[in-house]
Design a protein around this nucleic acid. Sequence first.
DNA 1: TTTATATTTCTACTATCATCGAAATAGTTA
DNA 2: TAACTATTTCGATGATAGTAGAAATATAAA
Lengths: 113, 113
Amino acid sequence: MAKPKQEDVVRFADMLGAMGTEPRLRIMRLLLSAHPEGMVVGEIGSELAISPSTLSHHLEKLKGEGLVRVRREKTFLWYTANADALQELPGFLYAECCTRNKAIEPQRIVCRQ
Amino acid sequence: MAKPKQEDVVRFADMLGAMGTEPRLRIMRLLLSAHPEGMVVGEIGSELAISPSTLSHHLEKLKGEGLVRVRREKTFLWYTANADALQELPGFLYAECCTRNKAIEPQRIVCRQ
DNA sequence: TTTATATTTCTACTATCATCGAAATAGTTA
DNA sequence: TAACTATTTCGATGATAGTAGAAATATAAA
């Protein structure tokens, strides 16, 4: 397998890990449902019943991995899902798919690129 | 947003979390590169330089989340990526995408279904 | 049966993470 | 400036996860 850059694997693993927790996956899906406007922190918190400090911690994590973006409007912070980042994920996962054994017939089940 | 079943969110979060660590993401990509035959445990371990017990622990986790499958052949255990499970992920993530604000123009950037 | 190899299970340790109350910060309005 | 609201930061705690050596299990071969 062609060696992926060390940083890339870590970066994508961190992205997946950031979504790999129930509350944060809920946040991402909620933000996607409200795409592309996004939502205000308070509304996310009341909808998902997450305390302010805990929610802020989760949003910070998602932001750190580039999965969400923030903009300020008056006193409110609007968070939106970062569509571009999400699009990268499957491509990275399947990048080297089925290349190892030189299969004559590409395996259509998984390999899309 | 239509409420996803509690178990589904947990299940998909666990799947993402299982891939959300550098060694396990490496394992998944390696197994995908060797798809659909898969690889023997020992070969995975030597290629990725992971100790047997640690590797076994990671494979157990991936298996538990349904991301890989195992078959025995003589003394060897062959692990393969579970393509079907991987396919489910994007669909679940985007399931309710952009439905919240009744946008007249569907947002093509993210919403594919 | 004995030996050898592949892989897992056990056990323990350290580090990281999720959670949340309280205090602090930032921006807005009066 | 003072008061108010939205949100973050701080600090602490309990729980979970990654790692790996040693022992155990499983299958095959001699």
